[in-house]
Amino acid sequence: MSEVRYAPDDMVVLHARTFQGVSQQLTVRIVNCQPVSTSGAVRYRVRIPGENFDRTVGRDDIDALASPGSGVQAPEQISRAKPGSSWINTAAIRTRK
């Protein structure tokens, strides 16, 4: 069975249990997919509407049945970083003078 992977700008629904003090499901936007850990856990950076910071959630925190069908079904098509390379895009870093 292939796992559902989400791409940046996909809207997904989180389980109500994901954040402490939140009793309803939240619809959030995926900011990016973080590198897969050695244990195989997939984590995403998400942004909740109305907040000006990102949060990190795991694949288990996303309610795939309630989320729109925007997931990418073929994880082998997602480009993997070369071993030893950084996931940080140094060309996108800007410094002030």
Rank of each mutant, 00 (worst) to 15 (best):
P83I: 10
R94W: 01
G69M: 09
V42A: 10
D63L: 07
I93R: 04
V57T: 00
R59H: 07
C33R: 04
P75N: 08
V22W: 13
K82A: 09
R45W: 09
R80D: 00
P83R: 14
Q24N: 11
L26R: 08
N32S: 05
T56N: 01
A7W: 05
G84L: 10
A64G: 08
S39N: 06
P8L: 06
L14F: 04
A41H: 04
R80I: 00
D61F: 04
I48H: 11
E51I: 05
S67L: 03
Y6Q: 09
S70Y: 14
L26C: 06
G50D: 10
R94F: 05
A92V: 05
G50E: 13
I30A: 01
T95L: 10
L14R: 01
V57C: 00
S85F: 05
S85H: 09
M1F: 14
A7T: 02
F53K: 15
M1D: 14
F19D: 04
R80Y: 00
V12Y: 15
T95G: 07
T95N: 07
Y44Q: 03
R94K: 04
D9G: 10
A66V: 11
Q73Y: 09
D10V: 09
L65A: 14
P68I: 12
R80E: 00
D61W: 02
T90H: 13
V4I: 13
S37Y: 03
M1K: 14
P68Q: 15
Q34V: 00
I48S: 08
D63V: 02
I88M: 07
V31P: 06
P83L: 12
R45K: 12
V28Y: 00
S39P: 03
M1I: 14
V31K: 11
S86K: 02
F19N: 15
V22G: 15
V42L: 11
T38Y: 09
G84D: 12
Y44I: 03
T27K: 07
F53A: 11
A66Q: 15
T18I: 02
P49R: 10
V57D: 00
P75Q: 06
I62F: 10
S67F: 03
A81H: 15
P83T: 12
P35H: 01
R17P: 05
P35D: 00
D63W: 07
S39E: 05
K82D: 02
V42R: 13
I62E: 01
T27E: 06
V36A: 05
Q73M: 11
R29M: 11
P35E: 01
A7M: 11
Q77C: 13
D54K: 03
P8Q: 02
Q73E: 09
N52L: 08
I48E: 02
G50N: 12
